[in-house]
């Protein structure tokens, strides 16, 4: 039966990124960081202060930053280049493709302020396409941690992984899901709650919402499995196939456009393994607007309420 979760208030994943970057800087002299005039927001500023020689301020020129990072990686460094996801992935995409993915260099790119939960700054700063773009790059590993603990651990895993990695971080504070002893493996989903009737597959901000949704559903007598897909690529195919086989219905929830995100990637594996009904929770075919993060995730349907409703819908379609 589902364990009762206690979601305590926690830090933003960008804050955990900043802390992990400092740890990595202490641990490995080959770790360098790059930023494009947003270090106070991405939280790479701590690293910049602690290791000024290994911090490269690129100014507002993301394309140049990504290719400089690729050059550093080609010469043996482990560079972490950070900016808002919207700028990093969109302005730096050609550089991610030709200078990082194509020659398979050891560059790590960290996109903060992802999704719509950045709030008041509005849609030009919001990134709702980044997972789709990053996953389209052959050889890239794509990570989307849900809380501070998983961000810290996965930053270390990313540094140890040889090859290009995109790490997605958020601006908003998010609940702590994991105990400090939780282990994470790139490409291996974490089963947060066991269940037999339906599986809720979530990533990033939506993981906590999926846990809350599962608790609501439990009160209605529906047993929901909750999986944290902190790795979007490579996808944990076994966990998906097992969920499809054992629960017969799947909901995927993400703070990303439903086109091209985790949902469609999971659906591909479901279609290839055990086809079952699916529902998708995410940003629909639109850009959001300025408002508080809370108002936005409510208006654009990214709450536990929306995940639970999708679960009820998918159960009606279950054979």
């Amino acid at each position: 039966m589902a364990a009762k979760f206690e979601l305590k208030p926690g830090a933003a994943t960008r804050e955990a990124f900043g802390k992990a970057l400092m740890e990595l800087g202490k641990k490995n002299p080959n770790v360098v960081a790059l930023d494009a005039d947003l270090s106070k927001s991405t939280m790479s500023a701590g690293f910049a202060k602690e290791f000024p020689d290994r911090f490269i301020e690129c100014g507002i020129a993301e394309a140049n930053m990504v290719a400089i990072g690729a050059g550093l990686a080609s010469a043996g460094k482990i560079p972490f280049a950070a900016s808002f996801s919207a700028f990093l992935l969109n302005k730096g995409f050609e550089q991610l493709r030709v200078t990082a993915a194509f020659p398979n260099v050891n560059l790590k790119v960290v996109g903060t302020h992802s999704g719509i939960s950045i709030g008041e700054d509005g849609p030009s700063q919001m990134s709702v396409e980044d997972l789709s773009l990053a996953c389209s790059l052959p050889g890239f590993t794509v990570l989307c941690p849900a809380d501070e603990v998983s961000m810290m651990r996965l930053m270390h895993a990313a540094a140890e992984h040889v090859g290009p990695v995109f790490i997605r971080a958020g601006r908003a504070k998010v609940p702590v899901i994991y105990g400090s002893d939780q282990e994470f493996t790139i490409g291996k989903a974490v089963t947060l709650m066991n269940g037999a009737d339906v599986t809720l597959i979530a990533t990033g901000l939506l993981v906590a919402e999926a846990i809350r949704a599962a608790e609501t559903l439990a009160a209605e007598g529906i047993s929901a499995r909750v999986l944290d897909f902190h790795t979007i690529k490579p996808l944990d195919r076994d966990a998906i196939a097992k969920a499809a086989r054992e629960t017969g219905a799947i909901v995927v929830a993400e703070e990303h456009l439903v086109d091209g995100g985790l949902g469609v990637r999971v659906a591909q594996v479901v279609a290839e393994t055990s086809p079952v009904p699916m529902e998708f929770v995410g940003v629909q075919n639109t850009y959001a607007e300025s408002a508080t993060p809370e108002q936005l995730i409510d208006k654009y349907g990214l709450l536990a309420r929306d995940v639970a409703a999708a679960a009820r819908r998918v159960l009606k379609r279950k054979r």
Partner: peptide
């Protein structure tokens, strides 16, 4: 030293390699 072909990328790559040499 680099895969090239899409124009405009090489100088940034070279700067990254040169910075790495300076660090080392």
């Amino acid at each position: 030293e680099a895969s090239t072909g899409s124009l405009g990328l090489g100088l940034s790559l070279g700067l990254g390699m040169a910075l790495s040499a300076k660090l080392d």
